[in-house]
Computed example of a mutant assay.
Amino acid sequence: MTTDTADKILAFIKAQKRVSPKEIIEHLGFSSQAVYKQLTKLLEQGIIDKVGKPPKVFYLLADKKEDEKKYNMSDDIKDLIDKEFLDITVNGREVSGWGAFVNWCMKRGQNVEKSAIDYVEIIKKYNSIKKNGLLDGMIKMKSTFPVVYLDNLFYLDFYSIERFGKTKLGKFLLYAKQSQDKKLIKRLSMEIKPKIKALIKLFKIDAVVFVPPTVKREVQLMKELEKHLNLEIDIIKVVKIKTPIIIPQKTLNKLEERIENAKKTFVVEGAKNYKNILIIDDAVGSGATLNEIAFQIKEKNVIKGKIIGLAITGSLKGFDVVSEV
């Protein structure tokens, strides 16, 4: 239900296609308070969308949404999708849950009920192989490298899954990193912090390595992650050596190239001894970077116990799927 003020705002948006709050105020003569009040309500009702960031914000009519209530799905299926499904629209708006899933299916011409059942089965399949909320990446490492210097490797989730693409955590990571949005990075940090703290407690970790970035950005995800996690244990510094031309790991398609790149461009600093060390990376493709850093730590004889690798997301099937981040 909309008010007369809201109806006039909607009519103006429909006529102009995309408008700013200032244009609405000037054209319709309403107070800024009244306009923002109605815009907020229309957003909450899903009637309009907002794009941009202050001071350049615009409003437009939202895409017509499918009636999510007409599908006869169990509460268990809807609840799991509410928890796991996240999408970022082409307008840069975050949507999640059952309603977002229904619209995702409709836009792709997929049967909603069958897709929902398939999605839940895939999520449950991968959740069933998690231990303490973690996926074991060591099988992949041992099948990839003749010598593995990590004692354990865990993923918080896969970067992507079959048919449905990027996972919730995969999308968080991709858009937080690419957009360099500090608020989104903080949300990602808070999402993963409990699991990382639990892992530190489980393995009695007393030092951590944050894998340094290879691509220069104004806002570096790993630096922000380090700040927000605030793990209160020693941080071992790893230096990314500058080369005449920077070659990010994600641009290398051959395993041998990734191994060579990691050997020549990462250096572990410091000489203090630790019991168990955790190496954190945002995404693991080949695992070459983590394996090289673990090798250097052992070469320096600064570890008495285990070296644990942890990636926010990873892949068990090659490393091309995480090349985006």
Rank of each mutant, 00 (worst) to 15 (best):
D136G: 09
D118K: 04
K114V: 13
P54I: 05
N132L: 06
K69C: 00
E84H: 06
L135P: 08
F145Q: 06
L60E: 08
L134V: 02
K69W: 11
N91A: 06
Y59E: 02
P54A: 11
I117W: 01
Y59Q: 09
D76L: 02
R108E: 07
K114L: 14
P55D: 10
D49A: 04
W104A: 02
A62N: 11
D49E: 12
D63S: 13
K131E: 12
S74C: 06
K65S: 09
E84N: 11
G137D: 01
I88T: 04
K53E: 14
L135D: 07
P55T: 10
Q110L: 15
Y126H: 14
K124C: 04
T144P: 03
A100S: 14
N127I: 00
D63L: 12
V120Q: 05
T89Y: 02
G137V: 03
I117L: 11
K131T: 13
E66R: 06
E66S: 13
E113H: 05
E84F: 04
K142R: 14
P146A: 03
S96R: 13
A116C: 08
L86Y: 11
S96V: 00
K83S: 14
K131I: 09
N103I: 09
K50D: 02
K56M: 06
D75C: 00
V57L: 05
D79R: 13
Y119N: 08
N127A: 11
D75E: 14
I129P: 00
I88G: 01
G52A: 06
D79A: 15
Y126W: 15
S74T: 15
K65V: 05
L80F: 03
K114D: 15
E94T: 13
K130T: 07
Q110H: 04
V112G: 09
D75M: 06
K64T: 09
N111V: 11
I81H: 04
K130Y: 10
S128F: 03
T144D: 08
K83I: 04
Q110R: 15
D63F: 09
I139N: 13
M106H: 09
V90N: 08
K56D: 10
L80P: 08
F58Q: 11
I81G: 02
Y71E: 03
T89D: 01
P54V: 07
C105T: 10
